[in-house]
Amino acid sequence: MRERITRREQLAGMAFAAPYLIGVAAFLVYPLAMSLYYSFCNYSMLQPAIWIGWTNYRHLLTDHAFHTALWNTIIYAAISVPFTLALSLLLALLLNQPVRSAGIYRTIVFMPSLVPLVASALIWQWLFNADKGLINAALRPMLHTLGRRILAPLAGALGAGQATVESLRHITAPVWLGDPHWAMAAIIFISFWGVGQTVVIFLAGLQDVPRELHEAAEMDGAGAIHRFFHITLPMLSPVIFFNLIMGIIGSWQIFDVPYVMTGGGPGRSTLFYSMYIFEAAFNQLRMGPACAMAWIQLLIILFLTALAFASARKWVYYA
């Protein structure tokens, strides 16, 4: 049955939504259209924009730094998103155990997610300092023993060459932010530190799983692991889905931590997508390529989200 919408209701509804409707026009639709337009222009903001067709997009095809930024972001998203999801689910399961002072543990795990990212970046930059940082200070003696006592004798016993054994004896701590691969690893690692909010969402989801289901399954003799995969996980799938979407959107926009911590280096090994857009737009005033890249970013995110939604039919279970 369709209810009749009175004129008064229609006006009231639109009036209440007016701030957003104006906002959509001013801060969403118009900028979106302008950004699309500029992506086909040569534009520095100091001179009028001129139309240059597909040139910006064509140039991006052969822009090495752009490829690096795209690739780095793909790597980051592909590793960080699933691992943070798994880690926060594990943490949530652990924190959901009925033990004493569980609240304190939860608070401790949650706190880092409140720390402004600029501060996080500085804290970790200091921790990852190759020479004076806490992480390598702890790693060095461990690696020393590991190399001399375990790896080298083991390799020797397995008949490895003299050079290999010798290099294993002198295994050293990574230089982290000074090494292209380890710098990326460090930035991914930092994303694990800020999972607090995801953990809390999972915790809430876990508490919504009906106790009776678990009890019934236990009576049927199902083990803990069986129950996790057949009850907890399906019941939790909408929450996992939500966190997945948020993770995808967030990881493609990573900016603060690498900008402050490495500035994209060493080389270009931690140059991420949003950083390169920022660099093009505000360090070089190349607004055209910046907008073109931003639109490509938008399309990638939309595509990945659509993919997630399409797959959701197969694995997300709505009670």
Binding site: E3, I5, E9, Q10, A12, G13, M14, F16, A17, Y20, L21, V24, F27, L28, Y30, P31, L32, M34, S35, Y38, M45, I249, W252, Q253, S274, I277, F278, A281, M287, A290, C291, M293, A294, W295, Q297, L298, I301, L302, T305
Partner: peptide
């Protein structure tokens, strides 16, 4: 409130959460 177009507006609300900030950065500036 029941009014025509609210479904559309809600759709925009949901969709706009996915738009990355860099898309707006330059035109907003």
């Amino acid at each position: 409130i029941r009014w025509r177009g609210r479904g559309l507006v809600f759709g925009i609300v949901l969709a706009s959460m996915m738009i990355p900030f860099p898309v707006f950065m330059v035109p907003l500036y």
